[in-house]
Amino acid sequence: MQIFVKGLTGKTTTLEVEPSDTIENVKAKIQDKTGLPPDQQRLIFAGKQLEDGRTLSDYNIQKESTLHIVWR
């Protein structure tokens, strides 16, 4: 499925993911596209910070959802 990651600059990155992907895995995909290391990424969805060990489905993140990224 496709999801979007929007940064503070307003730039949006598209990712191809599975609902079973962990947040850690998603951060690795973001690094592949942007070069930003996972330890500098904070992902937010529906006002919650996403924890590395959880999956996208744990947070009810579905296709075409938009996550927000904040740099540490």
Results as ranks from 00 to 15, higher is better:
T66G: 02
R72N: 15
N25C: 06
I69D: 04
N60C: 05
V26D: 00
P37T: 08
K27R: 05
T55G: 02
Q40P: 02
T9G: 15
L36T: 09
I3G: 01
L43D: 00
K27F: 04
D21V: 03
D39L: 08
D58C: 02
K27E: 01
D58L: 02
V5H: 01
T22F: 08
S57I: 08
V26S: 00
T13R: 05
D39E: 14
G53M: 08
K63F: 07
T66P: 02
V17S: 02
K11V: 14
P37Y: 07
S20A: 09
I44L: 13
K63M: 11
K33W: 11
K11S: 10
L67P: 01
G53Y: 09
N25L: 12
L15E: 01
K29R: 07
Q2A: 06
R72A: 15
D52K: 04
E24V: 06
P19V: 07
K29F: 05
T13K: 05
Q31K: 09
G47A: 04
K48E: 11
M1I: 10
S20F: 11
I30M: 07
K27C: 02
K6V: 15
L56R: 01
N25V: 14
G7I: 13
G7R: 06
E64W: 12
L15D: 00
S57V: 07
G35F: 04
T66Q: 05
V5C: 03
W71S: 12
V70I: 12
K11D: 14
V26K: 00
K6A: 09
I44G: 03
K6Q: 12
N25P: 00
K27A: 02
Q2W: 15
D32S: 12
D58N: 05
S57H: 09
I44T: 10
T34G: 04
L8D: 08
I61Y: 01
E51W: 06
K33Y: 10
L67R: 00
T55M: 10
L56N: 00
H68K: 08
F4I: 06
G7C: 07
D32Q: 12
K33A: 15
K11R: 10
T9F: 12
M1H: 03
R72I: 15
L56P: 01
L36V: 11
T22E: 03
L15I: 09
E18M: 13
K48N: 10
I44V: 12
E64N: 12
S20W: 14
E18G: 08
G35K: 05
N25M: 13
A28I: 13
G53P: 06
R42N: 14
G7F: 15
P37S: 10
L15A: 02
L50I: 04
V70E: 11
T55Q: 05
K33T: 07
A28F: 14
I23M: 03
S65I: 04
I69A: 04
D21L: 06
I23Q: 01
V26R: 00
D21C: 04
S20V: 06
I61S: 00
K63E: 12
F4L: 06
K29P: 00
D58Q: 07
D58G: 04
I61Q: 00
I3H: 01
Q49W: 13
F45Q: 02
K27H: 02
T22H: 05
V5N: 01
K27P: 00
S57E: 12
Q41A: 09
F4M: 05
E24G: 10
M1R: 02
S20Y: 10
D58M: 05
K48L: 14
W71Y: 09
K6F: 09
T13N: 06
G47F: 05
G47I: 02
L43I: 09
D32P: 02
W71M: 14
Q2E: 09
T13L: 13
Q49T: 13
L67E: 00
I23E: 00
I3Y: 01
G47N: 08
G53W: 12
K27G: 01
K29E: 03
K29C: 03
N60K: 08
H68G: 04
T12Q: 07
R54K: 15
T34P: 02
G53Q: 10
L8S: 12
E16N: 11
D52V: 05
E24L: 13
Y59L: 04
E18V: 12
T22L: 11
K6W: 08
Q31L: 10
P38V: 12
I44P: 00
R72D: 15
V70G: 07
T13G: 04
I23P: 02
H68E: 14
I30Q: 01
H68W: 10
T13P: 03
I69T: 03
L50P: 01
L67Y: 01
L43K: 00
G47S: 05
K63C: 05
T34E: 05
G53S: 11
E24K: 11
V5P: 01
I44W: 14
D21N: 07
Y59G: 01
V5F: 06
F45E: 01
P37A: 11
E16L: 14
I23R: 00
L67A: 01
V26C: 03
D32R: 14
D58E: 09
T22M: 07
D39V: 08
G47H: 06
E16C: 07
P19C: 05
I30K: 00
I61V: 09
I61F: 03
V26A: 02
S65M: 13
